[in-house]
């Protein structure tokens, strides 16, 4: 019963420091946050404020230093590696700020990559799903190009297609429109809007107010602390 009522994401008093040798770099301080299933949240803040760091922790890609992170009521710090891998494979996906595509590998292969680790999507479905995801970001004519033969914006769209292919419950997108012109950016935001209306939870990072306005809620971060957390009232006309 408790599981049903528990929020998707619940963070209390979370701290994050990076440790390089003996040097400690504290980045996030006392973060408290609740995100319900199906929300569309934008995280905003100046460069270096800790947005990506927070997203990586939320997206199961990095560990927090102290405080608690409950995912559907379960403490993440007590999950073992295999459970984390299972969540990464089936429940969430990530659009990286730096795209992180496999070099010397075709768009088609890059987009299919998450399916290798998805136990329930049959290999016979892979190709069709990949083509659909690539079409959704308008890259059908670049399907067989190698990732290093693409422009920055095209790489970003491949990264988005890759995140969509498993149809995850939660999508984390770190500056998904950062490298796109306004037209492609609008396409990406439309895709994210659609995911949201289909019931997926969408969490995105942006420094751009217009992009943030697509979301239903904006969290502002400043120097590693949450400065404000407000529902969006003025949504741009679609």
């Amino acid at each position: 019963m408790e599981k049903k009522t528990a929020p998707l994401i619940e963070i209390k008093g979370l701290h994050k420091s990076y440790f390089n040798d003996e040097l400690e770099t504290p980045v996030l301080f006392d973060i408290n946050l609740k995100i319900e299933k199906g929300e569309f949240v934008a995280i905003r803040g100046p460069s270096g404020s800790g947005k990506s760091t927070l997203m990586h922790i939320l997206g199961f890609l990095d560990h927090h230093t102290s405080g608690s992170y409950l995912f559907e009521g379960q403490p993440v710090s007590r999950m073992d590696e295999d459970s984390l891998a299972k969540i990464r494979a089936q429940r969430v996906s990530f659009v990286f700020q730096a795209f992180n595509l496999l070099p010397r590998t075709s768009v088609l292969q890059n987009v299919q990559l998450p399916l290798l680790y998805h136990p329930t999507i049959a290999p016979s479905e892979r190709r069709e799903r990949a083509e659909k995801a690539i079409a959704a970001v308008g890259l059908t004519d670049r399907m067989y190009n190698l990732s290093n033969q693409l422009s920055g914006g095209q790489k970003q769209r491949v990264a988005i297609a890759r995140a969509l292919i498993t149809e995850p419950d939660v999508i984390f997108a770190d500056e998904p429109t950062g490298n796109l012109d306004s037209v492609s950016g609008a396409h990406v935001m439309e895709a994210l809007e659609k995911l949201h209306t289909d019931g997926h939870t969408v969490i995105l990072v942006t420094h751009d107010q217009r992009t943030a306005d697509h979301a239903r809620r904006t969290i502002e971060i400043y120097d590693g602390r949450i400065k404000s957390d407000t529902p969006n009232v003025k949504r741009p006309p679609l």
Binding site: L61, E81, D82, A85, R88, A89, N100, P114, L116, Y117
Partner: peptide, 19 residues
């Protein structure tokens, strides 16, 4: 270097240690 980054990516996409 390159392979480590690849491993990071694969893990981010859901690969287990044993994969």
């Amino acid at each position: 270097t390159e392979r480590t980054q690849e491993i990071g990516l694969r893990k981010a996409l859901g690969a287990r240690r044993r994969d």
